[in-house]
Design a binder for these strands. Structure first.
Lengths: 253, 253
DNA sequence: CCGTCGGGTTGATCCACGTCAAGGGTGGCG
DNA sequence: CGCCACCCTTGACGTGGATCAACCCGACGG
């Protein structure tokens, strides 16, 4: 079964829609948007997917709003990995590992600018500040990717889920009294892939978190963190996560 | 026990030395070296370490020869992760996740150029070709990092070891008759950390590989792949690994 | 109204891998 | 030479999480 088939299956039972994440993009994107450039402006519907063939290695997407994921699938077996991008992030197709299939999928409605890498490089060469912001942005994303790799490699299930909740809270959470409300842009199955866990296992973990009073759940995609401190304490990388997010504007100030 | 302590312990029992990997660096480094720049040239002894404090986030290292690793250690627990870099690679300190401790360690004797990121950006701004090569190099490394994350997240022990052997063969192997000889720049414990496996488990896996006739072993650090095809077949990502290396000069031509 | 279909939950079972412990190999050093 | 660190190997054992299967639920279409 190809990635495309799997996507198609999922599409029809996803009625709920999300507002684009409204966190403001960082220094690079604001500067980029100010330039009169030859970018193509994209509006992505939720679940819309862009296949990244090897021929498209020279495309660069700059995410303005919404949440977008890249997915890679191995030839054999169903296993895949999901990486998440948030407003302000840059997605260079050439930086996504070249598996048998790789695609970019909008987890929420999203807006992005698409460049050919040549055009982007021309822009960067003309504006030293833009270049510096671009470089820092890529450093930050590499740092996040490395952190996520460390999470998958060294932490067990509950710790991984805690890390995910913290990350989502920092990116998408809105304070609601003593709790933090989060509208999850991914299905359980997708979260499981993002965390390199089995969907069944993830479901068990979420049930346990609910039973322990760490989170509560309004609907399938709406959850609330009831005990931030406890969640942060159970995950050894929470400090590193918060350090990465501290540099960027966040809904939780 | 801090990372530094652990390193110090290991230092004294490592008599064997390695010749720097002689693979020629890629397009970016050759172009970079041609410029009269304000880089500091470093010669690293084997096992020499450079601590990367947060204050050093603006350093960029360009690896000319040898093999270098970055290591991150979590505050709690001994768990860490090891990332490997080969000649031609660029190591931006700001792209290494900011854990409680992170360091750069020479796995073999190595030569590198050290830049302040500001100086590097100035250079890049003056030479469009250099900028393009830099960008491609970072894409390639991000791609490799993503691939490694996928390996750790989705593959089981034997598959991970196979992937490691393939990668090392492509980077460091020399054809010796029907076999491929590799001089491993890492100890078993370090390989285990690189693969997010337990050292005991890794030892068992290597024994099994030996028993199955996949590899043979001259000394602790010298192994030979006796059956390339079988090793490649047991690892779902071997195609992707070879695709990434295909773009670069390799000792196995 | 019922039937179907995809996703989520939960229980029972199994196995790969981590953990603990014991022992051998090797190089450094007194 | 013998001692000491450290690295590696191998066995026994326990467990976290993958797998399989059954069931529930909400959405959609007739």
């Amino acid at each position: 079964m190809t990635l495309r088939d799997r996507e198609r299956q999922q599409t029809n039972t996803r009625a709920q829609t999300f507002a684009p994440a409204q966190r403001t993009p960082g220094a690079f994107l604001t500067r980029l948007a100010a330039l009169d450039s030859q970018a193509t402006s994209l509006k992505l519907r939720q679940r819309q997917r862009i296949l990244l063939t090897p021929a498209q290695d020279d495309l660069i997407f700059a995410l303005q709003s919404g949440v977008v994921s890249t997915r890679i699938a191995m030839a054999t077996s169903e296993a895949g990995l999901i990486t998440l991008y948030f407003p302000g992030d840059v997605i260079a197709a050439g930086a996504v590992p070249n598996f048998s299939e790789r695609a970019l999928v909008a987890a929420t409605p999203a807006e992005a600018l698409r460049y050919k890498s040549k055009a982007m490089l021309r822009l960067l060469a003309t504006d030293p500040d833009l270049l510096a912001a671009y470089d820092r942005q890529r450093d930050r994303q590499a740092s996040r990717a490395g952190l996520h790799a460390a999470i998958l490699a060294t932490l067990d299930g509950p710790q991984r889920l805690a890390a995910f909740l913290i990350e989502m809270a920092l990116e998408l959470g809105v304070a609601a009294g003593a709790t933090i409300a989060i509208e999850l842009p991914l299905s359980r199955t997708e979260i499981a892939q993002h965390l390199a866990l089995n969907a069944d296992t993830l479901s068990r973990l979420m049930s346990r978190f609910k039973a322990d009073g760490l989170i509560s759940q309004k609907s399938r995609h709406q959850i609330a963190l009831r005990n931030w401190r406890a969640i942060a304490d159970m995950c050894p990388v929470s400090a590193a996560l918060m350090a990465i997010e501290r540099n960027r504007p966040s809904p939780l100030n």
